[in-house]
Each structure stands twice: as structure tokens, then as C-alpha cells.
Design a protein around this nucleic acid. Structure first.
Lengths: 335, 335
DNA sequence: ACAAGCGGTTAGAGCGCTCTCAGTACGAAC
DNA sequence: GTTCGTACTGAGAGCGCTCTAACCGCTTGT
């Protein structure tokens, strides 16, 4: 290998400080020692520039202080322009930093990477795992739980087993948006739903339907995949299905922005001809023309809560397996 | 701790297969053994569900198979809406996956996290480090290099020591943009520069200046920090400085989008009254109104090249310390 | 016939740490 | 003065792996 000057070990620190390895270990880990040894050990550590070897410690404690965040998403979406993932990462990283854990990011785009991740986690390479943005009945959370690895998901699992998760009030948020449109006197309210193999997509559509059920309005539905392009084409399809629609609830801001462009191209004015409400409240929402009325979900908080729950689990605590964060209708110009 | 059924070890696999530990180790590591032992070991591994213990292996090989990506940026920008970071992560992660390494993400927002990261890396917790988006003369690359950790940066270092890096042709790209504006007959060409403690900010401004130097045009400069808001307010300031300006080169697309909004609010038409060129070619650029003419830099490729260079370094190869990726003017509607 | 060579194997040391347990020092208690 | 308790320290085993060096049983060369 390359230049690797032998780094100082516990042994060498002990020798220099004139104490045993065990005592140095105690000092390093903050266990009680006499102030005399305390001091000489501290000095030796400073002089030698000693840093504990992480692997050796892990070998005996069986803790890695590594936490994985798995994004089982084709990378196209994860890292195109959707600020959801960066937001979650941001929140997660804040909490992990406070707990002095490191974040391992695993993108599970392909099937190959899926198995690779499973192997890596099974090797007890990390202390715990967060899974965000799952599709369908992903077996991963079940598999990992069975192995004995603490797992926390974003949104409830569509699979057979229940896994602790942090979700948001998708249905409530969607319903609030639709009610707002009804209250404003809109009569033909369509929706652009998200992917129907994801909780976010499913529950927001359900919320839309439930809110509409109370009224005499019928539902008009198109489905997108949370990308801007899919929002635009879904909007065009809706306009074809019902040229007289006067409102749309869109299951994500990115799709809503696409819809906005499609509406503009079709000659509709927003909100005069068609009212538009999105979901997420990403930064972009405040900058569209007109600014987007949307249902805010606390993205960064989702990350923070996932991390916090997982850290408790890793620490051996028992946790409330379900955390639901509130959503909130943010009124801007588009509805 | 919690439920941790003793996992099988090399020892137990060896016992079951009727061979020694060393032979099992060979099989696991793909070294030559007789097909007889090969087979019985494989079977024992499968039956026991053996997975090598990563910490134990690291302890002796001194390889962690972990690669860090450090973003020394106040998190506000990293994870607001700037797709630069996700793009780099994307590229990095592709290459690391191919090399079977894991990605550790370290966000160095505060000074506290800075030292924490330094400690963690000094403990040889990772095999190598990528540093993206550095400000000023960050000491981190120098420190790490001295410790003997392979480092690759994004853009050249502003510090005293030179560190291998992957950059883009900032000056060339900026100059091409300005030339395009000159060729179109624009006479009062302003710029919104990026932060002047970052290579990207500095070099693009230099490129702008150089391109203008050949002509008789004077330079009109405002400075932003790569965020959309800063772009908008820089644009307002430019309009105040020179209400008759007829073109702007903006050092990032996000700022350009902000500028676009400011121009619209001031009643200017783009590109009729004012031509606008951005830098980056993020996804958003194709969706602004009008679509943004911009200088494309291959963001994902930056990540890939950084990872590739670092992997070579980690593998003990010597590398060409400087990689410069090309930029390219993408013509759309705004100029 | 015997040494040398060779693929394949094994025993054993050791990576740097934690942790148990026995040991020691010292003051309080009787 | 002996005994006990308290508070710390140190020796040593062991975590699960790799890697070196010795070793085996065989085929070769002379």
C-alpha cells in the first residue's frame, strides 16, 4: 500500500504515560481515573497525536457509529431536481451530527445495488438504517428487521410487516387543499396524483377523493410520477378530458410547476381560469408565476424525526412506532 | 445491547467445511484453492449464512472501503434548492458503487462540525476524501494530505498547497457566453458574479472581464452567492447602476432565474430588452420563461471524475493531478 | 534414489481495542 | 493492629479477520 506511518496506539500512549492500556482506554472513554493518571495520559495523547482506531473499537463493541440512509429510487428522480431528498438528508445529517454518528448514503437504483446494499447492511456494517421513498412492497425493511438491524422508514410500508416510520398527514393535507378550492366556489376540481405505488401518491389521492365525496363534484384524475415533465403532460391530458375544469390539486410542487406551464401554454390564466394547489412547499413554490399555493410538508423535519427515532432504536430504547407530522395549507397566488 | 444472535465467523465456517480458517479466507477473497475445498466452503458459507465481519477485516488490512464526500458549506445553500450538490453526489455514487465502496456524506456547516470531520478522518475512518465546493483557503485538504489521506477536490485550492482536483473550464465558458452576447450586438453587458471566495465565482468573473477586454465595452458587476434570491437582488442593483444595460451574464442558473424574475418585475422583456445567459444548465433552466440560454458544466461528470481520481489514489496509483472538464454554451430563448 | 520444486494447506501471530477480574493501596472502623 | 470497604489499576483474554512462514504430499530433474 502507500505511505502509512505507523500511527500511535493505546499501547504507545500507555507506555509514554507510564500506565496500562486499560487506564488509557478509561481516559479516552471518560471513565473515572485519578487526576494524576488523567493528566499524564492526556499529555501523552496530545504529544503523540493519538486518535483511537475505529475498526479495533468496533470489533469489540460491535458498534460502528455508522447510520445508513437508503434511497431505493431510480437515481433519475432522486437527483434530478427534486429537493425532497436533499431536504431529508439535511434533516438526518443534523441529528446524526448531534449524536456523533456518520451518515452512509446508499442509492439503490438498480437491482444489483439493491442486493449489494442488503449484503453490506447484513455484514453489520452500520448500526441502523433509514429507508426513504419506498416503492410498492419493498422487502428490504422486512429483511433487515429480521436480521436484527434497527430500521425506520419514511411513510408506512406497503409490505406485509409493519416497520416503524415517520410520515406526514397526506390525506389531511390533500383534503384541506380540495376544501379550499370548494370553498372558493370551484366546481370542476381535478387532481394530478403521484405514483400509485407510493404512500405519498396513494394517500393524497385518497384525501382528494374523500374531500370531494362530501360535495356533488365528480373526480377527475390523472397520474404523474412526481417529476415536472409528468406534471405538464398530466395537465394536458386533464385539459383534454375536461376542458372546462376550473381547479387542480397536484400531489407535488414539481408536478404543479409543470402543470402551471401546461396551463399557460393552453392559454388559461392562473388562478382566474384555473386554480392550482401543489404539495410540498419546496423553495421553488414561492417563485413561480403566480406563486404557488401549496400544502406544506416539513421535509427537513421528516429527516430529523427519522434520525431521532432510529437513534433511540439503536440505543436500545423502545419507541412509538408511528410518527405523523402535520401538513399545512400555504396560501399564495395560484388559488 | 439488543438482540444480537452470534453471527457465524470464519472459524465456524472452517469447522463445518472441514478446513482451516485460512482456506475459508482464501475462498472468500477469491484466491486459488482446490475445487474440492472451494465447494465445501461455499456450501458451508451458504448454509450458515456467513457474512465477513467488516471491522475485523479493516483492523488487519487497514482498508475501510469507505470514501467520504465533504461539503464544507453552510447547509442553507447545500440543501436549499441548488442541484449542484445532488448532481455531484449522484456522479460520485455511481463510481463508488462500481468499485464497491460506500459513501460517507459529511456536511461541514459549522466550525464544530469541521473539527469533528477532521477528527473522524484522522482516525482513518475512511480510505479517502473528496472535498466539494470549498470556500477561501480551507486548511482541510492540506491537513488531510499531510496525515497521508488521499484527497481530491472540486476546483483548485485557494490555499498554499496544491491538491489534486477536478475542475471545469469556468473562464472559457464565461468568455464564450460574453462573446455570444457581443456577437449579438449587445453593447452594455453586465454580470452577476458568484462568491469571490470560490473558484467558480472568481474564474467566471475573470472570463467575463477577459472577453470584454477585447471590445470597447465596459464591465458592470454585481456579486451574488449562487442563490436565487441573491440573483434577484443583484439584478435590481445592476438595473439601478445602469438602467440601459441590454445583457447580463450570470454565474449560476439559480441566480439567473432570480435575475429573470427581477427583470420581469422591472418591466423588461427577455431577451428583447435584456439578453440573459446563465451558468450550470440545471434542469430548471429548460423550464424558465423564456428558457434559459446557459453555459453547461457537466455536474454529474464532476462527481464521477472526482470519485475515479480518488479511487486511483486510494489504490496506490499515481494520477494526473489536474482534470479540467469542458463547458458548453447551450442556446435557448433568453439570449 | 534423493534433492529440489510446487500447488495447496495449516498453525499461529497479530491488528488495536474493550472489558472482566484479580490485585493493590489507603483510609475508616472496630 | 487487624479487618473491612472503597477506589482505582493492570494483566490478560478475546473480538474476527489476514498473512507469513512452515509444512505437506506430490511430481520432476539428475
Amino acid at each position: 500500500m502507500h505511505s502509512d506511518h505507523r500511527r500511535p496506539t493505546l499501547e504507545s500512549v500507555a507506555a509514554r504515560a507510564g500506565v496500562s492500556r486499560a487506564t488509557v482506554s478509561r481516559v479516552v472513554n471518560g471513565l473515572p481515573v485519578t487526576s494524576a493518571s488523567q493528566e499524564s495520559v492526556q499529555r501523552a495523547i496530545a504529544e503523540l497525536g493519538y486518535v483511537p482506531n475505529h475498526a479495533a473499537r468496533t470489533l469489540v463493541t460491535r458498534r460502528t457509529d455508522l447510520i445508513a440512509l437508503v434511497l431505493p429510487e431510480p437515481t433519475t428522480r432522486v437527483f434530478s431536481d427534486d429537493p425532497f431528498f436533499p431536504g431529508v438528508i439535511h434533516g438526518v445529517s443534523q441529528e446524526l451530527e448531534a449524536a456523533d454518528k456518520q451518515l452512509v448514503l446508499m442509492l439503490a437504483g438498480s437491482a444489483a445495488s439493491h442486493t449489494r446494499i442488503e449484503r453490506s447492511i447484513a455484514a453489520h456494517h452500520v448500526d441502523g438504517v433509514m429507508l426513504a421513498s419506498m416503492h410498492g412492497a419493498d422487502p428490504l425493511p422486512t429483511v433487515l428487521t429480521r436480521i436484527g438491524i434497527p430500521v425506520v422508514c419514511n411513510e408506512r410500508s406497503l409490505g406485509p410487516t409493519s416497520v416503524p416510520y415517520v410520515g406526514v398527514d397526506n390525506m389531511g393535507g390533500a383534503a384541506a387543499a380540495v376544501k379550499h378550492l370548494l370553498d372558493a366556489g370551484r366546481t370542476r376540481i381535478a387532481t394530478i396524483a403521484g405514483p400509485q405505488d407510493m404512500i405519498g401518491g396513494i394517500d393524497r389521492l385518497t384525501g382528494y377523493r374523500e374531500a370531494l365525496r362530501g360535495s356533488s363534484r365528480r373526480s377527475i384524475v390523472a397520474v404523474g410520477d412526481f417529476t415536472m415533465d409528468s406534471g405538464a403532460s398530466a395537465m394536458r391530458q386533464l385539459l383534454e378530458d375536461d376542458p372546462k375544469l376550473d381547479a387542480v390539486f397536484v400531489a407535488s410542487d414539481l408536478m404543479a410547476d409543470g402543470a402551471l406551464q401546461a396551463l399557460r401554454q393552453s392559454g388559461r390564466r392562473v388562478p382566474d381560469d384555473v386554480a392550482l394547489i401543489g404539495f410540498d412547499d419546496i423553495a421553488l413554490a414561492a417563485y413561480t408565476d403566480p406563486p404557488l399555493t401549496t400544502v406544506r410538508q416539513p421535509i427537513v423535519e421528516i429527516g430529523r424525526h427519522m434520525a431521532r427515532q432510529l437513534l433511540r432504536l439503536v440505543g436500545g430504547e423502545t419507541i412509538e412506532p408511528t410518527v405523523i407530522l402535520p401538513t399545512e395549507l400555504v396560501l399564495r397566488g395560484s388559488a
